[in-house]
């Protein structure tokens, strides 16, 4: 896309080797922004994997949240980023089944990856976000209202929602903090969480449309956005104007 962009921004995206994170990284990179993408995989060739010279990949395994936060902070230094305009903390994991069958390890794993890690990463990048009066975007889930079959997953997303609500007030005039709750999207998330979706998947939002909707909500600096079907559809033709993210 040869669209003219006034200013190239620094964007951090976690969980970017797959699903929404991957598509978001490519979408922002294609508009000329500099993207640091994270994931837990070891990638041998970033350029082949993402197909864009604007995306640099670093490994940050969120099951070790302190190490992940440190890896991200070190990468910022290595790439000489003095500020972050936008950080999309998207990485998450899930488990599905009866809540009495969730093992302690499974509960721990989801809380660590979905809640502890974003909290520690937000803390680690706070100075860089403040430097740009940037934006911290958390990716939640519509499960935030409670789900019998993903009790811990829903709890971690509700945790992020509450975290964002309070931090937004704390960080007023320093950085904008928002949360976007996508509904079921046609990513590999469900299969990874052990859920067979079958035909129902047809009704899930296509990943590309969800990415459009997320980008729109980021541009609009919403406080909290639930990605409803209507919002998804109406986002299809929404795109950034000059100077916008």
């Amino acid at each position: 896309m040869a669209r003219r962009i006034l200013k190239s921004r620094n964007i951090l995206i976690t969980g970017a080797t797959d699903g929404l994170g991957f598509e978001l990284a490519k979408a922002y990179a294609s508009r000329g922004h500099r993207v640091v993408a994270t994931g837990r995989q070891l990638l041998t060739n970033d350029l082949d994997f993402f197909g864009s010279p604007n995306i640099a990949y670093i490994r940050a395994d969120q099951s070790e949240p302190e190490a992940a936060a440190r890896a991200i902070a070190q990468a910022m230094e290595k790439f000489e980023w003095e500020s972050i305009d936008l950080a999309i903390l998207n990485a998450a994991t899930g488990w599905t089944g009866h809540p009495a069958e969730e093992t302690p390890e499974e509960i721990q794993r989801q809380i660590t990856i979905n809640l502890t890690a974003p909290v520690l990463i937000a803390k680690a990048i706070a100075p860089l976000l403040f430097a740009a009066q940037g934006q911290l975007t958390m990716i939640g889930s519509t499960a935030v209202k409670g789900q019998a079959q993903f009790a811990t997953y829903a709890a971690t997303k509700a945790g992020l929602d509450g975290f964002v609500r309070s931090l937004r007030e704390e960080w007023r005039n320093k950085a904008h903090v928002q949360i976007i709750h996508p509904g079921p999207t046609r990513t590999k998330m469900h299969a990874k969480a052990g859920l067979k979706t079958g035909m129902v998947r047809m009704f899930f939002m296509p990943t590309k449309r969800a990415v459009k909707a997320i980008q729109r909500s980021i541009r609009n600096r919403d406080n909290k956005r639930i990605l409803s079907r209507t919002y998804g559809w109406s986002s299809v033709f929404s795109s950034a104007k000059e100077g916008e993210l």
């Binding site: 809380i111 809640l115 209202k145 975290f163 704390e170």
Partner: peptide, 26 residues
């Protein structure tokens, strides 16, 4: 909400939603 204790607030919201989630299956 609880500005000044955002992570505390996060844990308490998470707990509230967990309780809501498990109410029926329990």
């Amino acid at each position: 909400g609880y500005p000044g204790a955002s992570v505390y607030a996060a844990t308490k919201d998470a707990l509230a939603i967990y309780a809501k989630s498990v109410r029926k299956p329990f």
